[in-house]
Amino acid sequence: MKDFISTLRAVGWPINLLIAFFIFITLFGSFITPYDPNAQDLMSALQSFSTRHWLGTDNLGRDTLSRLISGAQTTLVGVTIILAMAGTVGMVLGTISGFFGRWVDEVIMRLVDFGLSVPSLFVALAIVGVFGPSYWNMIIALSIAWVPIYARLTRGVVKAAVNQPHIESLRVLGASRTRIIVHHLIPVALGQVLIYASADAGLLALAIANLSFLGLGVQPPLAEWGQMLVSGMPYLQEAPRLVILPGVALTLMVVGFNLFGESIALAKNPRPLSKRKLALRRQLFMKEKAA
């Protein structure tokens, strides 16, 4: 817990607030949307910013703010499911590969190499292409496309850990493979996977938007930012906010999660102190010395 807080502190509050905001609207979005995001009201279509509709309405008269919030929910729920699936399968494969080595490692890693050599979005496109566009097909497609990254990551962590004396000493003590893997290797790998996943969440949000933009992901009327972009395109001239608002939201999410994940990874490295902190430390040290 202490570690967790000090890591968050190192990340910096603007990013933390942004991430907290996204998580909040994902969890409680349904309670704070001013309107039903799917309720059409053709009488008030394409309205601009107003007190009734803070961010205006779209061509079908749906409240943009409500749809943006609902879209964040759609995206983040999708991202979470995909990361959980890809992370789990990737960790299992990577752990097996790293722990057993030899031919098992060879076979799994060649498959992973193949998966990594093809851009993930192409893999997802191909799968959706075969099974047809739908929300769940998109989730499964992106999960499969993202598995190799996590398998490779886990395998590296496990392989490094397996030859460390603390794992070797367990082998000498007679610990079973299951014990070593479950109690010692997976927790180490999980830490790394979570750090990577927090940066990866942004990329996945973008991938979901991409697929939906192409009409291969989230299907109408479910609100989703990529979708909102497409449906806003014809009205670019008269109501550019219909394109700009989901675009800005998407950018914030991608950049936010990227910075968040990267800062967590970097928080582990020592950095020179800032001038302010250094002066503080110096003062503290002098005080301790004098006391």
Partner: peptide, 11 residues
């Protein structure tokens, strides 16, 4: 020589 890191100072 005094060294300052984020957590402590040592001499």
């Amino acid at each position: 020589v005094t060294l300052h890191t984020a957590k402590t100072s040592v001499q």
